[in-house]
Structures are given as structure tokens and as C-alpha cells.
Simulated scan of single mutants.
Amino acid sequence: MTYQHIQFSIQNGVARIMLARPNKLNSFTEDMHLELRDALTQVQSSIDARALVITGAGRGFCAGQDLGDRGMQIAVGQAPDLGATVEKFYKPLILSLQNLRVPTLAAVNGIAAGAGASLALACDLVVASESAYFLQAFSKVGLIPDTGGTWLLPQRIGMARAMGLALLAQKLPAQQAAEWGLIWACVPDAAFQDEINRLAGLLAQAPTQALVRTRQAMQAAASHTLEQQLSMEAGFMRELGWRHDYAEGVAAFLEKRSPCFTGE
């Protein structure tokens, strides 16, 4: 597929997706969804990708749905089926990220609003530039947070703060988002790209399967009893203990050297 609304590359173990509609703050259109789906499919099947970074071009990360997109136009006398849009595009997007075979890093370089905020929060790590901010703008147009927002926000910061963000539609600066625990870190603008590159390199050199199993275990914890969670941990530890990267990690520790993980 030829991409017009995103940029995609894989280099040195790091897959990178840049949302590339800067004149529209990288807001979603149907065409951009299709390109994202294709790129994520490539990451899932590539033996070269060990980590994924998602960011935005220009001064924004993603401003959510482009309400001017032809697929979102409201026909005269006909109400739109927004649920169908969620089922067709946003639900598969979030699930594909949550089930990706490599760890994911959202590099939030500017506004992350609506579905754009949820896209970032669906990644394993979220790092934002100091000038970035998050906005749950749905209530301003008579809607609820979608793209997983009603699940991701309370999971990250608790019900009181999640409800306040959703009902009041107020900007949450990146520094405050970090203080609340919504994101991993807020980084000064001048150091932002260097920090993203550093973290992407660390993820790409890490024991990939262990990171993905960690994600899966933490996702499951909210709906598990302690006994169920302990059983899941036992199963994952059994599997990971048979893998090359565990043997390499132990050998490197005993030999007092840096490990060379393969992701297997």
C-alpha cells in the first residue's frame, strides 16, 4: 500500500509510524485508518520490528476524528451511525495495538485530543513533550470518550480524575498528566526527540516476549482474582523460562556483561 496520510519505516529494530496530516493536526480519516491498519499488520508480521513508536507530524500528535472527513458527513435528514464507525475503525485499531507482538511507545509531540488521546494511552509507554496536552473533547459535541477512553482513563488515573476530564473537557498539560500517572514521562521540548530515540532503542534491544507478556498480565489483572493472576504469572514464567532470552539474561548476569537479547 502507498501511504499518503502516514509515514512508516522499520530501522534498527524500531518500527515508526508518523501520523502525517499536519495541516489537520493529524486527525483521523477513513483513509488514514486503512493506512494505519496496513502498517500495524506489517509490524505484526515483520521479524525486523522489535518495538513500535507512534508520533505525529508538525505541532500535534492527533486531534481525534476529522469531523470534515467524507465518511463522517451527516446526510440531510439521516442520523449517522457513529457506533458503526467505532466498530469498523477504532475498535480494531486499539485491539491491534493491545495485541501487538512488540512493545509500543507513544511519542506525544503536541495536542492529543479525543481518539488521539486514547490512541496514545493504548500504547505501553507514553512520553509527552512539555508543550503537549491531552483533551477529552467528546462532551463538547454530545458524545462519550471512545477508542477505549472509558476503559483506559479510569485504569490509569482513577474514576474521579477520569470523570472530571471526560465531563469538563478541560486541557490536561503533559506535566500534570505525568504527575497524575496518566503517562510515563514529560520531557522538555528540546530533549524530546533524543529521549524518544533512547527509549525506542532500549525497547528494541529488550527481551520482547517478556515485555509483551508483562503487558498481557497487567491488562488481565483488573478482571482477575489474586489466585487467577498468580496462575497466569506461573504460566507466563514457565513459557519465558524456556526461551533463549532468559538463558541469555542469566548468562550475561553471571558473566558480568550486557545481554544480547534476540526477542525470542
Rank of each mutant, 00 (worst) to 15 (best):
Leu135Ala: 00
Ser258Leu: 15
Ala84Leu: 12
His5Ile: 03
Val108Lys: 08
Asp66Met: 10
Ser223Trp: 02
Asn197Ile: 01
Leu165Met: 15
Ser9Tyr: 03
Leu34Arg: 15
Gln155Lys: 15
Val126Lys: 00
Leu211Ala: 11
Ala204Cys: 04
Glu239Asn: 03
Ala210Asp: 06
Gln136Ala: 12
Ala120Ile: 09
Leu168Trp: 00
Glu233Asp: 06
Val127Met: 15
Gly83Tyr: 10
Arg21Ala: 07
Glu179Phe: 03
Ser258Thr: 12
Arg161Ala: 13
Gly181His: 05
Gly263Trp: 09
Gly68Asp: 14
Leu82Gln: 07
Tyr246Pro: 01
Gln209Gly: 02
Arg243Tyr: 03
Gly263Asn: 10
Glu248Tyr: 07
Phe8Arg: 03
Asn26Gly: 07
Asn99Val: 02
Ala200Glu: 00
Glu239Lys: 07
Thr147Ala: 15
Glu130Ser: 11
Ala206Phe: 04
Ala112Cys: 08
Gly60Asp: 15
His224Glu: 13
Leu36His: 01
Asp38Leu: 05
Ala51Phe: 09
Gln193Val: 13
Gln98His: 12
Gln11Ile: 01
Gln229Pro: 02
Met32Trp: 01
Leu165His: 01
Ile6Gly: 04
Gly56His: 13
Ala20Tyr: 06
Ala200Thr: 04
Leu226Pro: 02
Arg101Pro: 02
Val76Cys: 05
Ile54Ser: 09
Ser131Lys: 15
Leu211Tyr: 10
Cys186His: 01
Gly201Tyr: 00
Leu135Ser: 01
Val14Leu: 02
Ser118His: 09
Gly60Ile: 00
Met218Lys: 11
Ala57Thr: 03
Lys88Gln: 15
Glu87Val: 12
Trp151Gly: 02
Trp151Asn: 09
Cys260Val: 14
Leu121Ser: 11
Met163Val: 10
Trp184Glu: 14
Leu165Pro: 01
Gly149Thr: 11
Leu97Ala: 08
Ala178Gly: 06
Lys140Glu: 10
Ala210Cys: 04
Arg243His: 05
Phe89Gln: 10
Ser131Arg: 14
Thr2Gln: 13
Leu254Met: 14
Val102Lys: 06
Met1Leu: 08
Val250Asp: 03
Leu19Asn: 07
Thr41Asn: 14
Leu36Ser: 02
Tyr90Met: 11
Leu135Glu: 00
Asp48His: 12
Pro92Gln: 14
Cys123Gln: 07
Ser129Met: 04
Ala177Gln: 11
Gly142Lys: 05
Gly201Val: 04
Leu153Gly: 10
Pro207Phe: 00
Ala84Ser: 10
Ala51Ser: 14
Ser46Lys: 10
Ser46Ala: 11
Cys62Thr: 07
Ala206Gly: 12
Arg243Asp: 01
Trp184Thr: 13
Tyr133Arg: 01
